[in-house]
């Protein structure tokens, strides 16, 4: 077992973990952050486990828990403040971009990462940014609309 120090959604913790566990395992099983999903069997193919690791968008299934030692992780649970949804989350709900919801947390984090780097993305940039997040329900169209929605909200706010 290894002991790692990790800051998750702003909270510093020390956790023991076996070397062969992924960051996804740690977040879900040890920390109960079940907004982080596994849809492909931890192969890095679906993006459902997307989180921010030191501010960078990653698939948490492809990061060993031990590799997150000393780092900061933001999950979907860390995006909202108390009961208020983040404007991107709100936009996904209002635009009808949420159906079964299983891909939603990951897709929202990808949208967040995009809008942090590119405040006014084109449709093409949005599709590229969401291309690591498989969705089987929506056909992505309403997700693209939701990101534009959020773009406007965020630019008003700033």
């Amino acid at each position: 077992m290894l002991t790692i120090e990790i800051t998750v959604n702003g909270t510093y913790q020390q956790i023991q973990t076996a070397p062969n566990r992924s960051l996804l395992d740690l977040l879900r099983d040890d920390l109960g952050l079940t907004g982080v999903k596994d849809a492909c069997g931890q192969e890095g193919e679906c993006g459902a486990c997307t989180v921010l690791l030191d501010g960078k968008l990653v698939n948490s299934c492809l990061v060993l828990a031990a590799q997150a030692d000393g780092r900061e992780v933001t999950t979907i649970e860390g995006l909202q403040q108390l009961e208020r949804l983040h404007p991107i989350q709100q936009a996904f709900v209002e635009a009808g971009a949420v159906q079964c919801g299983y891909c939603t947390p990951g897709a929202i984090l990808s949208a967040y990462d995009l809008l942090m780097h590119t405040p006014h993305p084109s449709d093409e940039q949005i599709r590229e940014a969401l291309s690591g997040n498989l969705c089987r329900c929506t056909g992505y169209t309403k997700m693209v609309a939701a990101v534009h929605h959020a773009e406007k909200e965020l630019s008003h706010a700033s």
Partner: peptide, 9 residues
């Protein structure tokens, strides 16, 4: 290569 998530890693 892949998507942003994998290009970051």
């Amino acid at each position: 290569v892949g998507c942003r998530q994998t290009r970051n890693r």
